[in-house]
Amino acid sequence: MSLVPPSSSGRLPAAFTTPGSASFVEFLAQAAPALLPGNRPAGGGDLVVPHATTIVAVRFDGGIVMAGDRRATAGSMIASRHIEKVFAADDYSAIGIAGSAGLAIELVRLFQLELEHYEKIEGSLLSLDGKANRLATLLRGNLGLAMQGLAVVPLFGGYDLARAVGRIFSYDVTGGRYEEQDHHAIGSGSVFARGSLKKRWRPGLDAAGAVEVAVEALVDAADDDSATGGPDAGRRIYPIVATVDAAGYRQVGDEQLSAVSGRIAVERQVGDPRA
């Protein structure tokens, strides 16, 4: 397959010079449709492919925290213990993914590029709602693959520059977009993470407090869900945790995560005086 359809003269083909669209996905549908994940037949049968698991998002005053564990599973096997599932979508938003890992990472790349492409062509950032809606459209294009068992479910959150607050959006495989209050979790460990978030989240959290709540929710999910990996102090593998606020997207460093997860581990030690 040629990346760029040949034109008789060697000049850029019409799809490149057609004015109007600031969407990379729409351009891709014209210029190289085979590169869009939704246009690929998946075939039937039970595929055992790596699955990404638990993602949590927590709102705090002036932003959000998103955190994801590092495990990917293929059936009962651990496919990876250091996969990354939380990414910067752009400077002011984060995306975390659960579901079929290969497709999910492809979707993230496409979404990141969609936002950057818009920014370059239009010279301005999309609104947070605009970004959330674009993600819903991308998911809708994936519905055929989802029906064949290759579902991808993202969690999206970011800092709304117009309203100066952090916001969280969840999705279903059909592209349904739902704005969440305060906190949310997706993936196989989400049931346990949500229980934890409900008990630990409180209004008026700061960024550091929200990081603690998010990591603790992941620890709770890892406790009870075999597909979620907890913090691994021995290998120094910690969840990917990011904050998004007025200053933009920042990944939380391993030192802070090691301190937070160490504290949680101590609190839960058998025989701890506080227990």
Binding site: A15, F16, F24, A32, L35, H117
Partner: peptide
């Protein structure tokens, strides 16, 4: 921009 983004994506 389209040329560059398509290359980088592929």
């Amino acid at each position: 921009v389209r040329y560059a983004d398509l290359r980088g994506y592929s």
